[in-house]
Design a binder for these strands. Structure first.
Lengths: 123, 123
DNA sequence: AATATATGTTAGCACAGGCTAACAAGATTG
DNA sequence: CAATCTTGTTAGCCTGTGCTAACATATATT
């Protein structure tokens, strides 16, 4: 089973929420992503099957090693792509929205160059 | 009926092929996109229903005003995004592949800034 | 003319990932 | 304690978009 764009979004959202509260539950993810509990339930089930997350007896979601690595890498892309768009003059809203779509499809190679661009052009 | 990423790809491919041969048929599109004739047939049917293309008695595909406008705008994004990635040091293959994915999702605003970046940094 | 090949179409399947509806079980409150 | 609310889950529907199989034509080849 391969992870898709949608799965990546769920992982990223969980990571983001974990920065705000200690226990992230399915309902938090659903609210944050503005999808139904049903959609979230199914998505999380798949992430469990893929061994990317673990849900404890209280419903708190935590990452496996691999899950965390994927979540962080997507989140990193999000942050850096947003930064990049801001650097070239895009407002934060648009920058973040575009980053959110591009983070799932850009190649590692191009992303590396985008990061270099940021280093050379920020400060 | 709204145009999706897939529909945009078919339009872009048709435009690209029209630059090479006078009469572009379904089979050419299928071969170029490496999808089956069946998939192409259905996709073209939809594009016809959306009044974006017209297919003459010989099977030659032409654009409506609106279809051409969409095809050209996607193609323009493709070219400019490829240029942009090449400018920041990506090889042409990767640049074009990434452009192909990003062209469908980037906002007009960000795209404008990318174009400005190209103007300021090429030559 | 008869067979073969190329092209287009339709039907029907698969999968992803949204949704609603219905229900179970726990938490909260009158 | 009984009623209600919250949360999670499952079943089943819909849409997009790929695929194969089967078939209709049209064009070529023998």
């Amino acid at each position: 089973m391969k992870i898709h764009e949608s799965g990546e979004m769920y992982l990223e959202t969980i990571l983001l929420l974990q920065k705000q509260v200690k226990c992230v539950r399915a309902i938090d993810v659903a609210n944050s992503m503005e999808v139904t509990r049903a959609s979230t339930s199914r998505a999380l089930k798949q992430l469990k099957e893929m061994k990317l997350i673990v849900v404890d007896e209280n419903g708190c979601i935590t990452f496996s090693k691999e899950g965390e690595q994927i979540a962080k890498s997507i989140y990193d892309r999000h942050v850096k792509l947003t930064q990049f768009f801001e650097l070239i003059g895009i407002d934060s809203e648009t920058a973040s929205a575009d980053a959110c779509k591009i983070e799932h499809v850009i190649s590692d190679r191009s992303f590396e160059k985008i990061k270099q661009f940021i280093v050379l052009n920020s400060k």
